[in-house]
Write a protein that binds this DNA or RNA. Structure first.
Length: 888
RNA sequence: GGGCGCGUAGCUCAGUGGGAGAGCGCUCGCUUCACACGCGAGAGGUCGCAGGUUCGAAACCCGCCGCGCCCACCA
């Protein structure tokens, strides 16, 4: 709609405009009118599609959610006003460990897959954390679904309160039937193409959750430890009996000595040359291990000799693999030292009895307990050299875990990533990053990958692998020949569904079958959000069987933008690019818009454990949604922002200002004129056009914060200077032909500029802009067209460059003089309306000539009797206030 | 150890080669005909430090210091 048609509707402006109640009033109206409904009939080039971050619904509501989702919404609203059909669904990430943990605590249950399903199960009325009820996997999943439904409502309430312009008819969940089907289908495709494979291998393992975890889910935490110097003696016949007949290593993990398979030195380390190639005996256990070399060993560290165990850390895995070392594994899946077969192959000892006796002391203990005990044993055996040195070291934890991850050998599913690294780096360069420097994090991550992606988890609430395995005559599982589900069957749960050609009775019996017991990593499903949202939106919930929608998918994929925060570049962003590459040989989106974090006022990351998390609901109530959005939108892309309620007050002020400025501009004081005749009006419109151009460029580059800042600064200037300068001319109408024209011009300029401001602010302050728009316009401001700078300028008619420049100068000098007049009144402690007898303006000839264009406006605005001018090099103003009226 | 970002007023931050700025906070004033949820004015800065390029540097280059984040083969 061109602005010229926007002024036809008579304004109905409230006597006392207010922000109260706008959220409810307008969110109901938007829902009723389907204001944000995606237009499926739009051609692809008119579609703007957003790959929404599905929030983890089991996490607590956090002001950080408000922050980044507001950024996305501002962009969505801008694109909609640019005429795009905006595809803006909302997803809920409900599968995975956080939900499991919450369900366990909330209902007082534990999942036990061996328990049969009980259709009539109800959780205990008074949940007991100490003695949880064991329930079947299907029952457990039902409870997960029940709880996430409540969580999802809380999130939806928040999003609606915040005014997100989401199409609520298109929601999805990551545990829903659609997501499961897409996830399973993708997996089967990868399996067929050899991109997914199964392997029994050392795997990162969380001992509390007892599941494999991925490299991407690790984080470092500083933990105190102690460095111990331990003696390994040379094996019989390898020494000459002299004092040097031992090898010293340093370790923080002495409990892994029974799992030691070699000692290593750097190939160039002269000090160790005499030992290399010999055999040493592990202390206490008397196991023969070789002394070898490897270039990764750092001769500067410790004694220059390092103990390789299966497995203490990821480097051990590298050494074990590259040097072809045997496995001697002591750590069980539960994080305790397991029983080991002393004397069997690989567990030989020069003193078996002693090895058994000493290991007896460790077996069954946790890592920490075993560490303490083995140090005592080593001390007794005189195999510790010197005192332990306290050290602080970074230890790898599963990000949701409570104890360090261990490396445990187990059978897992992997997706190939290492072989695609070059392609993934190339995709990263094809993607437009906002801000651009965020690409470095992606490249760092891809370059630092150490292995393929382990996607299987030994958990319950997730997408199962759509696979079964045959059992041989002895009941052993034949892992090498999985039976895949047919595509039409998906989604399947192999723990209850039965593969073709088998019957239920054959489950778990020799010659029969078993289902794959694992579920997929939550990122294995979240990495498919473009496909899930674009293919099955609207089929939320597990009950739905709605199919994928190829027509829709073709319209929205690849998506235009992935908005997300920088902390999950290595997980969500990376894995989505990987899956899109593997399944579609394409980038999943054209742009990545990266948000920062919300920090607490002390600039610390907000986290539950620190207790500094701010929840958002009360902020919306206290300051209003527009005010909270204003604060959020002030946070620049990629930049962390300290939480600051003060900024919300500023946002509220802006919203109130817009109410009042709109009321003023729409007051029907004089009939509208046909054209903008007054120089100051024309100059203001020209400046506004420049602001529109700036905001448009900023938004096109996803810099909503810059757009807001430019608009806001100009809007306040407009209220403080322009409105004050033209106010008098507007009220003074009717005296002469000139006055009538002048009043008509200002009336015209006010409406034109107001329409632009309301639209410029609409992406940020959707509620108040909709309110003021409704006073005089048809339809929603959020479906109005984004203002156009060229169109605004064309309304000025054909303007010569020189005359435009002098008009702008007129506005500038009028505002400068007005400021000086105000200053004089303020210093004299007189009201702003106090009359001024005479003003003398000193300035250059050019500026003084320009002043003549706006001098009448200036006189009225400052209540000035006479304005005189004197040519001068420097700008200066003399102000003579009129005599103060006598009291009484 | 490597990478990225940041360092400007008490606080939060804008400022891509030519006047050091905004908001908040603080002080003072003004019941003003859109707005007291308001308006006007004022005080307040060695632009982290040091060097270089330039007629001219808060900005560009080099080095250093500090803070934050990401990554690392953390013994």
């Amino acid at each position: 709609m061109p602005p010229d048609q926007l002024t036809d509707t008579p304004a109905t402006v409230p006597e006392r405009p207010t922000l109260d109640g706008l959220e409810q009033k307008w969110s109901e109206a938007w829902e009723r009118d389907g204001c944000y409904r995606f237009d499926r009939s739009a051609p692809r080039e008119r579609v703007f599609s957003i790959d929404t971050p599905p929030p983890t619904v089991s996490g607590s509501l956090h002001v950080g959610h408000v922050f980044s989702y507001t950024h996305t919404d501002a962009v969505a609203r801008y694109q909609r006003m640019r005429g795009k059909a905006v595809f803006y669904p909302m997803g809920w990430d409900d599968n995975g460990l956080p939900t499991e943990r919450r369900v366990q605590n909330h209902f007082g249950v534990r999942c036990d897959p061996s328990v049969p399903y009980d259709a009539s199960f109800e959780p205990p009325a008074e949940p007991s954390e100490k003695e949880p009820v064991s329930i079947s996997r299907p029952n457990f999943v039902e409870l997960c679904l029940r709880l996430t439904e409540t969580d999802e409502r809380a999130f939806e309430d928040l999003w609606r309160g915040l005014g997100l312009s989401v199409d609520w008819s298109m929601t999805y969940t990551t545990i829903g039937a659609g997501a499961q089907r897409i996830s399973q289908r993708s997996f089967l495709g990868l399996l067929e193409r050899g991109e997914a494979y199964q392997l029994e291998a050392p795997t990162l393992w969380d001992v509390d959750f007892q599941t494999a975890v991925a490299q991407a889910e690790l984080e470092d935490r500083e933990r105190p430890g102690a460095m111990n110097r331990v003696r390994f003696r040379l094996a019989d016949g390898d020494g000459d009996g002299a004092d040097g007949d031992s090898a010293l290593i340093e370790t923080t993990r002495p409990e892994l000595i029974p799992a030691c398979v070699a000692l290593l030195a750097h190939p160039d380390d002269e000090r160790q040359r005499g030992l290399v190639g010999k055999q040493v005996l592990t202390p206490l256990f008397g196991t023969r291990v070789p002394v070898l070399t490897h270039p990764l060993v750092d001769p500067e560290k410790g004694t220059g000799l390092v103990m390789v165990c299966t497995f203490g850390d990821l480097t051990d895995v590298v050494w074990w693999r590259e040097l072809g070392l045997p496995v001697r594994s002591v750590l069980g899946a539960d994080g305790r030292l397991a029983e080991v077969p002393w004397g069997a192959a690989g567990w030989e000892s020069v003193d078996l009895e002693r090895a058994r006796r000493d290991y007896e002391e460790l077996q069954g203990r946790t890592v920490n307990q075993a560490r303490k005990r083995i140090l005592e044993l080593l001390e007794q055996a005189n195999d510790i050299v010197g005192e332990p040195t306290p050290v602080t070291r970074a230890v790898k934890f599963f990000e949701k875990g409570e104890r360090p991850v261990e490396i445990v050998t187990s059978r897992q599913w992997f997706l190939r990533t290492m072989s695609h690294r070059e392609k993934l780096l190339q995709r990263g360069r094809e993607l437009s990053w906002h801000p651009p420097y965020m690409r470095a994090r992606y490249e760092d991550w891809v370059n630092g990958l150490t292995g393929d992606w382990c996607v299987s988890r030994q958990r319950f609430f997730g997408v199962p692998f759509p696979l079964w395995y045959r059992l041989d005559a002895s009941g052993a599982v034949l892992y090498d020949e999985p039976i895949a589900a047919r595509e039409e069957q998906l989604p399947v749960d192999p723990s209850t569904d039965v593969p073709d050609g088998y019957s239920t009775e054959q489950r778990g019996v020799p010659g029969g079958f078993v289902g794959d017991p694992d579920v997929m990593d939550t990122w294995a499903t979240s990495s498919l959000t473009p496909q899930i949202a674009g293919g099955s939106a609207g089929s939320a919930g597990t009950g739905s069987t709605a199919g994928e929608d190829q027509e829709l998918f073709a319209k929205v994929f690849p998506m235009d933008v992935r908005p997300q925060a920088h902390d999950i570049i290595r997980t969500w962003l990376f894995s989505t690019i990987l899956r899109s590459q593997l399944d579609h040989d394409a980038l999943p989106w054209k742009n990545a818009a990266i948000s920062g974090w919300v920090l607490d006022p002390d600039r610390k990351k907000m986290s539950k454990s620190k207790g500094n998390v701010v929840t958002p609901m009360h902020l919306l109530e206290e300051y209003g949604a527009d005010a909270v959005r204003y604060w959020a939108a002030s946070g620049r892309p990629g930049t962390d922002t300290a939480f600051d309620a003060q900024q919300m007050k500023v946002g509220r002020r802006l919203a109130v200002k817009l109410l009042n400025a709109s009321k003023f501009a729409l007051a029907d004081l004089s009939p509208e004129g046909e054209s903008l005749t007054s120089p100051l009006d024309r100059a203001m419109i020209a400046r506004l056009a420049a602001v529109v151009a700036d905001a448009t460029v900023s938004f096109d580059g996803y810099d909503y914060a810059r757009a807001l800042e430019r608009v806001e600064v100009f809007f306040w200037w407009y209220c403080d200077y322009y409105l004050e300068l033209v106010k008098g001319r507007r009220y003074d109408a009717g005296e002469s032909q000139d006055a009538r024209l002048g009043a008509a011009s200002v009336s015209r300029a006010l409406r034109r500029s107001l329409s632009v401001f309301q639209r410029l602010l609409a992406p940020f302050l959707p509620f108040v802009t909709e309110e003021v728009w409704s006073w005089w316009q048809q339809g929603s401001v959020h479906r109005a067209s984004w203002p156009d700078a060229a169109e605004l300028l064309s309304a000025l008619g054909g303007v010569e460059v020189d005359s435009a420049a002098s008009e702008d100068e007129a506005l500038a000098i009028a505002a400068d003089v007005l400021k000086e007049v105000r200053k004089a009144k303020s210093e004299a402690r007189r009201p702003m309306r106090a009359p001024v007898a005479r003003v003398v303006v000193h300035d250059s000839a050019t500026r003084l000539a320009a002043l003549a264009l706006g001098v009448e406006d200036l006189r009225l605005a400052g209540s000035i009797e006479a304005v005189e001018t004197t040519e001068a090099d420097e700008f200066a103003v003399e102000v003579e206030l009129a005599e103060e009226p006598a009291e009484g």
